[in-house]
Write a protein that binds this DNA or RNA. Structure first.
Length: 116
DNA sequence: ATGCTGACGTCGC
DNA sequence: CGCGACGCCAGCA
């Protein structure tokens, strides 16, 4: 089970994360933990965030702005340029964001494990 | 080459 | 019920 995920290369793990994030539908958001769980690494939720850090050099561009922590807070906004672009982009997609906090987060939440 | 830090989440006490 | 510590991976000094 858990060994199966070890079957993939470590770098593949990052690719898996990017893949899932790219699959996030427009107007929907997901959390780091949800992706980690979907990949079978619930305890590696951090790695998902680190992967986002690397997402800038990945092509096609990864919609990292659709990925937030489990509370729906735009924790990674500081990695955008400018940081406001993250919240602005979400609002542009129809997602209400106030003070770096997504309103009705669970309403817009997109669970890969449930949708895929 | 080694060590620390960094976009989180879960478990334990 | 509240706080602390651990796990995971990669990039950088």
């Amino acid at each position: 089970m858990a060994k199966e995920y070890l079957d993939h290369s470590k770098q593949d793990f990052f690719q898996q994360i990017f893949q899932v994030v790219m699959l996030v539908p427009k107007g929907r958001v997901t959390s780091y933990g949800a992706i980690a769980k979907y990949l079978g690494a619930a305890r590696s939720s951090r790695v998902v965030g680190y992967a986002m850090s690397s997402s800038h050099q990945v092509v096609p561009p990864v919609p990292a702005h659709r990925v937030v922590n489990r509370i729906g807070c735009l924790t990674g906004r500081g990695h955008f340029s400018p940081p406001e672009s993250m919240a602005e982009r979400l609002m542009e997609e129809g997602i209400p964001v106030i003070d770096n906090q997504i309103q009705d987060f669970e309403k817009y939440f997109w669970d890969p494990a449930a949708e895929l």
